[in-house]
Amino acid sequence: MGTALLVALTYWVIYVVDESFSWQALVRPIVTGPIVGLVCGDVTTGIIMGGLIEAIYMGIVSIGGGAPANAFDATVICTVFVIKGGLSTEAGLALALPIGTLTARIPQLILPIHAYFIRIFEKYAANGDADAYSRLQAMYRFVIGKNVQVIVIFFAIWLGSDAVSGLFNMLPAWVTGGLSVGAGMLPALGLGILTSMIFNKELGAFLVLGYALHAYLGLGTMAVAVIAGAIAVIMFFSDIGKSNNQPVVISEEEDFLS
């Protein structure tokens, strides 16, 4: 239990320091491994485990944030299992991907907590209370952040590897599957809020254009930005050409272009 407590605390500190720079650097296996190794009294094994797990996770790129597996949690748990639990390096490594995939679900489970705090943020903004807003954001990583994960890490290490996989296998498939389905819909929320702010009937069809460019042609955000940007420029110039025909404006326009 002492180890579990110490490791959970280490996990929390690494996360908080890393998040203080929005870095995603200290939480990479190659850096986390040695730190966990140091805490558990075997730096060399920590370094080696970190390197091996980094090699697995290096290719898993989380474009747009939605990571399919959590490298940080996996590194901490697997490294401790190898150093303290007497697991072989290979066995620890084999666990890295399943554990990372399981813990990557946690953010979906605690989303209602985030939703609650988002409303507090919104209330502060609507009241013009900038200082309270700042304070909450500055504290967020300490008081909410990954605290649920800290508890999960603590129990995972305390109870050992068998208990962890047993616990997750107990959940029926439709619960875990259902959470994934729900999580798939979530981006609609942020985008829906955004749409409610910028939508207007006159230009609403451009929403369809952006959709079609991705859905039919498979273009990414960069390509859509370039195409929509070109249309925006055309519209801009035809627009100012229509509204202002005075010579003064035209000369100003030439100044801008030259």
Partner: peptide, 26 residues
């Protein structure tokens, strides 16, 4: 201003359409 916000809307809405299609998984 009007022309700029119109142009910005074109970009913003296209981007939301593209993001919705790529990020929302249903």
């Amino acid at each position: 201003i009007k022309s700029i916000s119109k142009a910005a809307s074109v970009l913003g809405l296209s981007m939301v359409g593209c993001l919705a299609s790529s990020l929302i998984k249903v």
